[in-house]
Amino acid sequence: MSQSSAKPDGIHLRLEMLSQPRYLSGARELVAAVAKRLGFTEQACGQIALAIDEALCNVMCHGYGRDPNGVIWLSIEPLGGHAPDNGATGIKVVIEDEAKQIDPAKIKSRDLDDVRPGGLGVHIIHEVMDSVCFQKRETKGMRLSLEKRIDDDGADSGGCCTEGACGHER
């Protein structure tokens, strides 16, 4: 795809999947493979895949309440240049669904000192990704936009919110 033919929405790759755990493996491997080609280290690719896995699990379990017939869209785009010969500066992954809407401000990680099963997904997502933005979609469902930048060494660039109006806390 040349720069002039880049899609206006910036999306380079879009996956549509049902809300079934058996597709988690394929989704995270796809994201990890793309991240690898964009220049992330093996370790960073694994962590990005983990964050995507956690986000998809949350949609399946909490958004759709384990309904296996829900639809999830996963979109990937490189940050920092759309032409294939441009070096990417990071990756953006957007996960959208048609599940129940919730107030983004209420999506927070829990107190980790309270050791109990579950509730770690949001914490992991925030810990791994540089930017995490939950939004209500215009019609129905939620949109989660995740970004991670490549450091000079291609490694984890740490995490901080770059989206001011997301209604979440790190």
């Binding site: 699990c57 099963p117 579950g118 992991i124």
Partner: peptide
């Protein structure tokens, strides 16, 4: 080779 938080939660439950 891989574990997500559902696996961790399972182990936390087992530990308790």
């Amino acid at each position: 080779p891989y574990m997500d938080s559902s696996g961790v939660a399972t182990l936390v439950e087992a530990m308790q």
